[in-house]
């Protein structure tokens, strides 16, 4: 089965998706404070890695990386509301790109699988 990543058109399409996704995140008042001071290129590179992962592309992210990358945000107080907002923007981005609802649901499930890592919680086993 081809991944959504390939269906979307690989790396080039992910670049376009990153722009849309990152713009939504930055325009969101709940999330913007966490993205205010960061280097935009570096941030976009991270978002690209994230989008690549949740669309089933060649990901290099592990749960541990996710945990480490978000540790400082956890310290600053991110919680489930922030995570839900990000997942919402992810779905919105894919919808804008013409992705069907069932595929968006698949991506949502993949994103869900890293929730505990992002929020620095012990995984519910």
């Amino acid at each position: 089965m081809t991944s959504l990543y390939d269906e979307l058109g690989g790396a080039v399409a992910i670049d376009a998706a990153v722009d849309i996704f990152y713009r939504k995140v930055m325009a969101d008042e709940l999330l913007a404070p966490f993205f205010d001071d960061v280097d935009m290129e570096r941030q976009a590179a991270k978002q690209k890695a994230f989008l690549t992962m949740v669309t089933g592309g060649p990901a290099h992210y592990t749960g541990r990386d996710m945990r480490r990358a978000h540790a400082h945000l956890v310290a600053e107080g991110i919680d489930d509301t922030h995570f839900d907002a990000v997942v919402g923007h992810l779905a919105g981005t894919l919808k804008e790109l013409g992705v069907s609802d069932d595929k968006i649901a698949r991506v949502g499930a993949l994103a869900e699988s890293v929730r505990n890592d992002v929020l620095g919680r012990t995984p519910a086993v």
């Binding site: 722009d19 990152y22 935009m40 290129e41 976009a44």
Partner: peptide, 13 residues
Amino acid sequence: LKKQCFLRGAGLK
């Protein structure tokens, strides 16, 4: 400006 131009639709690249 970089942030605002991006929010107003310019692609990061």
